[in-house]
Each structure stands twice: as structure tokens, then as C-alpha cells.
């Protein structure tokens, strides 16, 4: 399989102009998205890495798309900041660009929002080798078409991302986790529903089927004890309090619970959909963000069940058909045609 390693914007442009079909790859942590198909040249972007601008007092950075998240997060952490959408698969080598292309967020998206809420700008090479910029490098901006938002979840359909700008926030000074076991799924869902509508500013709110809730709080150490107690009395349960919870949540956001499953999927979920999802033959799984985001490990019949049930999902590893359903043709196709008229990139 041909593979090229551009190390500059100019080399990306050259690659786009000379290869009829390209499959961009970052760290390869989502092989279903980064494995080249018949006739595609692999565009390995791991050479385009590094932070270009970072002003901690602005809460903004710009980095090359091929920058590994691990590297990025270490720099942010040194300034007491983080990516609040809590990207998954960091340990497995996920890059910033790959995370945008897949549109992935992790458990702490519950507090301030997902990837789409933190992306500020993009510089990409379109299907004709042209360099296009969208958005900007400031936290508030309403000028021009927001190409940066178009990149989220795009699977690289519109262009090769080269640079990305993001908003970041201060990392919580301290964290605590409360784990509560409920009698059955229905009871867990009822509690989840209540917690979602209360102003508790939870960092994470996960349902681990069948009936365990994991609730993470972040803030001043002085306030956390009181907030945990309030949560316990609200739930009328002591639960289990994790005072050192960092390692646990690192495991969750790296999707460690899916290890061993042949197929990994992301499913946009909802509270009212969970009972139905729970009736399907899914493997190891966890509902994040108050039930709105499911990561599940599947066997082939589990994937078939999702598809037959018409449930939207994205395959991260283990299958060829990655996106269901296809994007709405009447809106997607013209944009695709405008930016990638020769169909060099994935999707459509």
C-alpha cells in the first residue's frame, strides 16, 4: 500500500495534487477510519506535529493536526489547563486532527461540552490542493463560513486538516468521584434523569450498565467534600467515594473497557433510547455525558443489530462500513462537490 509522509503544508498540497485518492492518517488509533481502501494512498500526517501558538492567558492554542494529544495535553497541563471535551484514545496515540475528523469526545464533555464546542479554527488543504482557512484564533468569532465546524466528524471528507485552533479551560483544582450502584437499569435511568436537570456542574456523569452510576465532581478542594455529601444525600446513598480518581477516568477515556472487543463503535444516544439499546446484543459498553454518548464493543451480530435498527453510529475499529447513516445528500453533496470536486477524500 503506498504511503506518503508530508512534513509541511506545501508537501500536503503536493500530495493532494498528485494522488487521485487519499486516506489521511494520524496516530492510527481508529483503524476503521485510517486504513486505506482499494486505490487509496495513505497520507500519514504524523510528521506535521507540534504546537504553533499557545497563549495560556488567552485559553487558546493552535497546533498542527498531526500533533499527538498526549503531547498537547502535557503542555496544557503544565499551565494548569486541559481540553475540556476530554478526547478519547490518547494513550493509543490519537492526534488532534484524527479526533476532529472522527468527532470524538470523552466523559468530561459533560461539564462544558464536546469537541464541537471547543474548536475555533482550521487551516486545511481542499481537494484541489488549495489552502483554506475557516474560523479564527479567538474564543468568539462570527465571521465567514465556519469551515472549522464542518471538519468535526467529517472523516476527512472535505480536506486535509493541517492546523487547528482550540479553546481550552483551567483544569479543576481537585476532583472526586462518587460511584453508586442501583437496583436495576430502570432505577439508574430515573436517577440519571434527575441528575441531568440539576445545577450540579458535574464533570462526568456515566451509566455503566446495568445499573451503576459514576459521577465525577471538580472544583476547589474546600468545596468538594460538601458537594459530594450533598450528592449522597440527594441520592440517599453513600456509594463509594474515589478520592484518587485520575487513573480511573484515564482508563475510561482511553476506552479501556472496549479492549478485547473486535468492533468498537460510537453511538449518539439519549435517555429515552437507552432501554432499546440495552435490549440489543451489545458487548462491553458505557454511556457517557448523562446518557448522550455510548461507546460500545461489539461482535459482528451486534453491529448488524444497530444497522438493522436504524441506529446512527460510527465504527472506530473492526469493520469497513464506518458511518451510518450517510450524511443528508441534499446538503452534504453540494459542499463535498465544492471542496473536493474530484472525490480524492473519504466519504461520498
Amino acid at each position: 500500500m503506498p504511503e506518503i509522509f508530508p512534513s509541511s503544508l506545501e508537501e500536503v498540497r503536493e500530495a493532494v495534487r498528485t494522488h487521485p485518492r487519499l486516506r489521511p492518517k494520524g496516530g492510527g488509533s481508529k483503524p476503521a477510519l485510517s486504513s486505506p481502501q482499494e486505490g487509496e494512498t495513505l497520507l500519514n500526517l504524523s510528521g506535521l506535529r507540534g504546537i504553533l501558538e499557545y497563549a495560556p492567558e488567552e485559553f487558546v492554542f493552535t497546533a498542527y493536526a498531526g500533533t499527538p494529544l498526549k503531547e498537547l495535553e502535557e503542555t496544557l497541563r503544565a499551565h494548569g489547563q486541559y481540553l475540556p471535551f476530554h478526547p478519547p484514545l490518547v494513550e493509543q496515540g490519537a492526534t488532534l486532527g484524527g479526533t476532529v475528523a472522527a468527532g470524538l469526545s470523552g466523559p468530561m464533555r459533560e461539564r462544558f461540552g464536546g469537541l464541537r464546542d471547543f474548536i475555533l479554527g482550521v487551516r486545511f488543504v481542499d481537494g484541489e490542493g488549495r489552502v483554506v482557512r475557516g474560523g479564527g484564533k479567538v474564543v468568539k468569532n462570527a465571521a465567514g463560513f465556519p469551515f472549522h465546524r464542518l471538519m468535526v466528524g467529517s472523516l476527512g471528507a472535505f480536506g486535509v486538516m493541517v492546523e487547528l485552533s482550540f479553546k481550552v479551560f483551567p483544569y479543576p483544582r481537585a476532583t472526586r468521584t462518587l460511584r453508586v450502584g442501583l437496583a436495576h437499569t430502570a432505577e439508574a435511568l430515573a436517577v440519571l434523569q434527575d441528575l441531568r436537570t440539576l445545577p450540579l456542574d458535574l464533570l462526568a456523569l456515566d451509566l455503566v450498565p446495568p445499573a451503576t452510576l459514576e459521577i465525577r465532581l471538580g472544583g476547589f478542594p474546600e468545596s468538594l467534600e460538601k458537594r459530594v455529601q450533598r450528592l449522597q444525600s440527594l441520592l440517599q446513598r453513600e456509594g463509594e467515594v474515589l478520592r484518587e480518581d485520575e487513573a480511573h477516568w484515564e482508563g475510561v477515556r482511553n476506552l479501556a473497557f472496549l479492549e478485547g472487543s473486535p468492533i468498537w463503535v460510537k453511538v449518539p444516544s439519549r435517555l429515552d433510547l437507552i432501554p432499546h439499546l440495552e435490549s440489543l446484543p451489545l458487548g462491553p459498553r458505557r454511556y457517557l455525558a448523562g446518557g448522550d454518548l455510548l461507546y460500545a464493543g461489539l461482535e459482528p451480530h451486534g453491529l448488524k443489530a444497530l444497522r438493522d435498527g436504524g441506529i446512527p453510529h460510527l465504527v472506530l475499529r473492526g469493520a469497513q462500513e464506518v458511518l451510518f447513516p450517510s450524511p443528508p445528500e441534499a446538503f452534504f453533496a453540494p459542499i463535498k462537490r465544492a471542496l473536493d470536486p474530484k472525490g480524492r477524500f473519504p466519504l461520498g
Binding site: 465546524r149 449518539p268 446538503f331
Partner: peptide
Amino acid sequence: GPSLEGVGPDLHGFFVG
């Protein structure tokens, strides 16, 4: 869609603005 999360290009996000 009605979930906070989606799959595929964020076309509604692109439309806004």
C-alpha cells in the same frame, strides 16, 4: 439530531453562522 453527540460531518454546526 436530538443527542448532544452526533456522527458524520457537523452540518448543523456549519449552517449556524
